[in-house]
């Protein structure tokens, strides 16, 4: 009993510290705050279920990337709360404005909008890319070869360019 309490405590502490990883995944895969919370909840459950087997041979954050992405791409089924009409403003409100001039701000909004139009797999690649992961890590997380990860990433960049400049 004491052991499980300890485990719980350690897990919650770690998740609290690294919660932005989960928030970021939710941001990419959902379109409004309700859906964001719903996905966050499911990822938390999956992380907690997998936690007893977490050996610590990889970093907690690296392990979190995997579980979070797997949940968002494969395991998550939209809950009742998450089924809502898409609200793009909800997505875009998160763009911080104060540090940018108007053109940059405009550009960022368009970029986030474009990323939201990608499919689940493409979003995962962009996510790992934005998180500054190496192609080796991307290949390990996705289960594809490093070469294919590179090829796919280049295609995603082209696709984004086409969306931005039709």
């Amino acid at each position: 009993m004491k052991l499980s309490k300890e485990l719980e405590h350690r897990f919650v502490e770690e998740l609290e510290k690294h919660q932005n990883i989960v928030h970021k995944v939710c941001r990419l895969y959902t379109n409004n705050q309700d859906a964001h919370n719903d996905l966050f909840q499911e990822i938390t459950i999956q992380l907690w279920k997998a936690y007893p087997k977490f050996r610590g041979d990889s970093k907690f954050s690296t392990w979190m990337y995997r579980v979070s992405l797997n949940t968002a791409i494969t395991l998550y089924r939209k809950g009742k709360r998450a089924i809502k009409t898409q609200n793009m403003d909800d997505v875009l409100y998160k763009v911080k404005t104060e540090d940018y001039d108007d053109t940059e701000e405009q550009q960022l909004k368009l970029l986030y909008k474009a990323v939201h139009q990608l499919n689940d797999i493409e979003k995962a690649l962009v996510f790992l890319y934005l998180e500054d992961k190496s192609y080796r890590e991307i290949s390990n997380t996705m289960g594809i070869s490093e070469v294919n990860a590179r090829v796919k990433m280049n295609r995603v960049k082209t696709k984004l360019r086409t969306i931005l400049n039709p």
Partner: peptide
Amino acid sequence: ELELLKKDWQKDTAEYPQLSAKEIYPMI
């Protein structure tokens, strides 16, 4: 453009509503 996005993305400011441990406990 993607580099610009990356720059914005990695600014780990309090952009997301941070959950406290107290809020995470019932979630698990």
